[in-house]
Amino acid sequence: MKNTLSAAKPASGSLKKPAWFVAFGFLVVLILINWYLQPSFFDGMVLHSNLTTFLPLILVAIGQTFVIMGGDIDLSVGSIAALVNVVTVSVIAMAGGDSASVPIGLVAGLVVAVLCGAFNGLLISYLRLQPMVATFGTGIIFSALALWILPQAGLAVPDVYWMTYGGTILGVPTVLWILVAGFVFVLIMKRRPFESHLKAVGGNRAGAFQSGIDMSFTRLLSFALCGLFAGFAALCLTGETASGDPLLGQSLAMGSISAVVLGGTMLSGGVGGAVGSIFGALLLGMIGNVIFFAGLPFEYQTLVQGLIVLAALAGGVLVARK
């Protein structure tokens, strides 16, 4: 009997490129272009300010990845960020408005963030509402709450808040610390069973249930996690603006979803990872930069940005098909 079985070779999973490969390639190209257009790109100051601009989207995209991997979607992340922002500044103001009240405000903001996410999760995984419809609705509610708490932009935070955020800790920029922490978190999750269960839920709901995974709870957790990361993003934005703004973060929902998809996570669920989303978010930021430095007239910037995003997405799809 010669070689009877060689005809049915399974494609090897390990030799495939990771899902974020395309986003990473694009990112490198854009960085080179940006460097060419703006020779000071690699100066510490410039990197610092770029990272400060990109960080909120990176954080939201990390959270959004978990929801999308589970086959759901969260359109309310921008509203969660706005609500967290106004809650944080209001709580700090109520607690006295001095440096000592900052931690209280941060904690209050994060608690609200997790509660918002968990509320989404409850509606979707236990009451079985469609994720798109449900989070569109809760997004409106969270925005309304934000406006109710703080009808107008204002309420400055103590100096220590924005100075710490914009400054350095142990000689390293705070924003870099946060990025590194985000990366470490993502790498930890990659090796934890939770992410694998979430992908199972997103990849084949029946199979996941039959394998004994608690689907509702897993999905609930993914929404809570997404809320938490929208909260982190809000705290970063607060550090940037140094005050409250009930209308902040409106582009975060679409931005984060684009970043996740650019990073190789499939909207249908079950495939991908948050490492790619970080690259995806950086890529989106770099696209904006390059367009700015290329000196395009303002009216065209959005259009060109849209076209580049589309090209990157198409590239990803083509590579995935191979």
Binding site: G13, I188, R191, R192, P193, S196, H197, K199, A200, G203, N204, A206, G207, A208, Q210, S211, G212, I213, G270, V271
Partner: peptide, 27 residues
């Protein structure tokens, strides 16, 4: 109808929800 997740590896499917873990809770 099989309870397998198509986009996951053979080993991840076999041990789905019963992944062997190390001391840190990692797979």
């Amino acid at each position: 109808e099989l309870s397998l997740i198509p986009k996951m590896s053979v080993e991840a499917n076999i041990f789905l929800r019963r992944e062997p873990r190390n001391g840190l809770g990692f797979i």
